[in-house]
Write a protein that binds this DNA or RNA. Structure first.
Lengths: 225, 225
DNA sequence: GTATCTTTGTGATATAAATCACATGCCTTT
DNA sequence: AAAGGCATGTGATTTATATCACAAAGATAC
């Protein structure tokens, strides 16, 4: 059996705390699988059977709402996906779908659990990551509801530029419909505000391609709601 | 030194997994303090220095938003408060204020950390609780934005009845202004919908006292948004 | 017990954003 | 290359809810 995890250059911070024997054990209980844009990795409502690690690519976390499928957030690799729903609850409480071609590692849940129980450094690191993502959710909660559309759209554009693509020129990886579901707005409103931003010289667009021209103003719009 | 934690009848599930020696150590590094309604236990923006355990009472978790202080959720004792912001980040990312007279245990952070590192059962249990609260936040996120006022108000009333007070008759522990901040609505709208519910015979009110008369209908309003 | 502040109730008006409607553009499939 | 389907742009209209305004009722302080 080849020890694929050992040679993997993009292991998680937690996995780097595992011993050689543990890495080997992980390797034997882990599968690296390519996912094409649009394929679903975790499905809300079904049993969770594996830990999911997004090795490369980009994914959206989404959840059934009363009216539409709400996109809660967009996660960039490398990152575990859905830890709380996998280790905390038997049934997935939300879905994860890849929005760019990605690589996903499926790690056997029992193997992962045994690391948690036996390697306290590993457990501690995973716990820190859970804490971090919970804190981000709190932020999410208050921004989502108090800001108005222009502010929320500005925030998302800045998030793409700064966190996801690390460039002021990028390609929006979701449709305007999904963009709306991410910020709780209608597709039409997203389109209108984007046009408005372009008209005001804040961005330039070419299809899904976005160029941020006046970042300072965009930041200000984001702050003021 | 008296071992107050040993005789405490409402220890957390995690604390019940500690050894006698550990309980004794916790006892020596822990203070039980009464809090009066309205007093703040955790303040956003300052250093976190202790683990906070709400032993009895009721508290609200709130966070600065761009326009108002958003109440994220209401937590009933017994429960740890603000674990992610205490162990995950040095600076509190949100505030916790007691909304009924309560008892709070402050546990030394380093003591708690040492339990996490040395007692894997304890650590595992804390991790499960973190997972659980993160999942609740996801739910929060989608309900908060997709439902309209009547639905959100119905949900909160049902939550008070079923989770918080376990009775269809109860006293609302927050002002209508705060009620609004919890569901992202204006104070006036809350007042209006409550009047409406009373007029429709769904609830009866006497000041802050609420009696749920038609729970089935309330559930339906909550579901339909 | 009176005065002051806070909380609540309710009408009138304003407004952000949804919805509806339809045109246009773009990708994919054959 | 044509056809069909999905994604986008933009105007007109509707609607839920905020905001404004003020009165009444409770709570708290003096």
């Amino acid at each position: 059996m080849d020890n694929i995890c050992k040679v993997c250059g993009i292991k998680s911070t937690a996995a780097n705390l595992l011993s050689n024997e543990e890495v080997e054990e992980m390797s034997s209980n882990c599968a690296l699988i390519p996912f094409a844009k649009g394929e679903q990795v975790i499905r809300q409502g079904v049993f969770s059977t594996n830990i999911v690690y997004l090795r490369s690519g980009l994914a959206k976390i989404h959840i059934h709402g009363p009216y539409y499928e709400q996109i809660v957030r967009i996660v960039k690799a490398p990152s575990y996906m859905g830890l709380p729903t996998t280790i905390g609850d038997k049934i997935n409480q939300y879905s994860v779908t890849v929005i760019e071609d990605s690589e996903v590692c499926f790690i056997n849940l029992e193997t992962f659990r045994s690391f948690l129980k036996e390697n306290t450094d590993f457990g501690y690191q995973i716990m820190m990551e859970l804490c971090q993502s919970e804190l981000e959710l709190y932020q999410c909660c208050s921004n989502r509801t108090q800001k108005q559309m222009r502010g929320k759209i500005a925030d998302v554009l800045l998030d793409f530029a700064d966190r996801i693509y690390c460039s002021d020129t990028f390609h929006i990886p979701i449709t305007q419909e999904e963009f709306g579901n991410l910020i709780d707005a209608s597709r039409e409103s997203v389109s209108r505000v984007l046009s408005e931003f372009e008209h005001d010289g804040i961005i330039s667009t070419d299809g899904r391609k976005i160029d941020i021209l006046n970042k300072k103003l965009l930041l200000k719009i984001g702050e003021n709601g």
